[in-house]
């Protein structure tokens, strides 16, 4: 059963067609890397996958639920329950500590739990930095807090937008290792990157160009084949 299914998805902003008939199926537990130049439509695609936007036409089905039929609250609920996000710019709340930033995601999901948030930070190697503010953390540390925040609610899908874009080589390795660990537990990862080396960590790689998924190839020999025939929404 696919966890993400896009059927002939179009997203139009005025005259500009940001997505032009995109079809995509991602299996549960699959790691998909999306590459492409700036302005190719990667952000728009991630907005749709993250339930932050709805398509102009076509079907987007996330974890068995059709996005087109949902109102703002429904989209928010689906995002809250299903998606974890890692941003290139980290987007931590500057006046909250690392622990509170992770608790923030719990708070909006269900209930803040300091012990569980601390465990999530320990899992990304930030156990010694629980009460540090973002300004007191390095870029790599901030990204690890961002990963802990994304994973603390056990999302079915992890969306990562250039997660290593602002990191040095050592921190890049740490972050990739954390994502790899998440994937190895059977979770789905969609990762946007400009770096082919990082893209090769994924099971499969797609390339966005002019609003179309122009090429789709297995990034690794072990990657499962993507098919488009299991897009039926959950009853």
């Amino acid at each position: 059963m696919s966890v993400i299914c896009l059927e002939n998805v179009v997203k139009q902003y005025g005259e500009v067609r940001a997505l032009d008939g995109v079809n995509l199926t991602v299996e549960r537990g699959e790691w998909l890397a999306i590459m492409g130049p700036s302005g190719s439509g990667k952000t728009t695609l991630l907005n749709l996958l993250g339930c932050l936007d709805v398509p102009t036409s076509g079907n987007v089905i996330i974890d068995g639920r059709k996005v087109a039929g949902l109102d703002t609250d429904g989209l928010t609920a689906l995002r809250r329950e299903t998606i974890g996000s890692i941003f290139q710019q980290f987007h931590l709340v500057p006046y909250l500590s690392a622990l509170e930033n992770v608790m923030l995601a719990q708070y909006f999901h269900s209930m803040a739990d300091a012990a569980e948030a601390a465990r999530a930070l320990e899992a990304v190697g930030m156990g010694e930095r629980l009460h540090h503010k973002p300004s007191q953390l390095s870029g790599g540390e901030q990204q690890r807090v961002c990963i802990a925040r994304a994973l603390v609610n056990y999302p079915a899908i992890l969306l990562a937008d250039e997660p290593t874009g602002n990191l040095d080589r050592a921190n890049e390795e740490v972050v990739l290792e954390l994502i790899r660990g998440f994937h190895q537990r059977g979770q789905t990862v969609i990762l946007v990157t400009h770096n082919p080396e990082i893209a090769r960590c994924a099971d499969r790689m797609s390339v966005m160009s002019y609003g179309k998924l122009r090429a789709c190839a297995d990034a690794s020999p072990a990657g499962p084949a993507a098919t488009g025939d299991e897009c039926a929404p959950r009853p």
Binding site: T72, D73, A77, R79, R80, V93, F108, H109
Partner: peptide
């Protein structure tokens, strides 16, 4: 704006 956007992205409803 950025903080509000982030909270919404994390799952905060408009009502919340």
């Amino acid at each position: 704006r950025r903080e509000i956007a982030l909270m919404k992205a994390l799952g905060a409803t408009d009502r919340r």
